[in-house]
């Protein structure tokens, strides 16, 4: 039977829960997939006989063969190599954008939710950011600075910040009305301590879900930018621009889109499963066996 005391998240409890949690077999599989992907990305030069950017014009749009495991694209480049090397860029874009959005968004959300005087200011800035369509912002940013991995990453992460801020703020707004927070306040707990002890742990579970979402969104946005012709240049293969390059050939060679899309889908699925598992472990209220 739960009481408010028991459900109030705290750091020690988060750690305790994480330690005591036995992962589901699916979670194990997802972790394995992610590890495999990271390894594949790191070892791409060893895993493919071909270079991902070398064009062989006479070998374009070839079907799969022992030499070209997945066939070749419209410029005669090896698809297997491009998907492998693409993993590098896509994972870096995803991780970079997520890290950036959380590192910037989390403190802003906490501050905004707790210090009510700062709230209007922070939220207006977030409104301003969200009010400019992310894709427009990204296109403009990329047009000013030459498209590169960093530019694309920054252009992707900026529009993701407000969603993190809003989520964290909403959690804090709810939590600060909870009895245990009010009790702590009555006991004279100060701002920083209050944030760290009581409010921050409260945001972790939903934030993990949101971070997984941002990670996925970043990879997808990268592909959308490539679709619009403003992504990373094709000398640097990413899943996004591999798909964008293959888009025209969808009706004659769907493999050009299928494989990068499959890799992308698998990644996002795994990230989400691991994210869920983490959340369940951190916030047992939401998982099985309680309530």
């Amino acid at each position: 039977m739960s009481s408010p005391r028991l459900t109030a998240p705290s750091w020690s409890r988060l750690v305790r829960e994480l330690g005591s949690h036995r992962p589901h077999w699916l979670t194990g599989l997802a972790i394995a997939v992610l590890v495999a992907l990271v390894l594949a990305a790191l070892l791409a030069p060893l895993l493919s006989a071909h270079d991902p950017v070398t064009m062989v014009p006479s070998e374009r749009l070839r079907p799969p063969s022992p030499d070209h495991l997945l066939g070749t694209d419209a410029m005669g480049r090896d698809l297997w190599a491009r998907v492998l090397w693409g993993a590098r860029i896509s994972l870096v874009v995803g991780a970079g954008a997520t890290l950036g959005a959380v590192v910037i968004g989390l403190p802003l959300g906490l501050v905004s939710g707790y210090f009510r005087r700062l709230d209007p200011f922070v939220m207006r800035v977030m409104d301003g950011l969200m009010a400019i369509p992310g894709i427009l912002l990204a296109v403009a940013l990329i047009a000013i600075v030459r498209p590169s991995l960093t530019t694309v990453m920054i252009a992707i992460l900026i529009p993701e910040i407000p969603s993190v801020v809003r989520l964290v703020r909403a959690r804090v707004l709810s939590a600060r009305e909870e009895p245990y927070v009010e009790a702590a306040r009555l006991l004279g707990t100060g701002g920083a301590k209050m944030l760290w002890r009581h409010l921050l742990p409260n945001t972790v579970a939903p934030l993990v879900v949101q971070a997984a979402h941002v990670f996925a969104a970043a990879i997808l946005t990268e592909s959308a930018l490539s679709f619009l012709g403003v992504g990373i240049g094709t000398e640097t293969p990413s899943w996004g621009n591999v798909m964008a390059d293959g888009r025209l050939y969808f009706s004659i060679k769907p493999a050009l889109i299928f494989w990068p899309a499959a890799a992308l889908t698998l990644t996002i699925l795994s990230i989400n499963i691991v994210g869920d598992a983490l959340r369940d472990a951190l916030d047992p209220k939401t998982s099985k066996g309680k309530g």
Binding site: V53, T54, M55, P57, A74, M75, G229, V230, G231, G233, T234, E235, D245, L248
Partner: peptide, 18 residues
Amino acid sequence: LQQTELDAFKPQPLLAAQ
């Protein structure tokens, strides 16, 4: 320079560079 909007003009700069 390579433009990325028209498929027919993506390969030349890459192949020339190679």
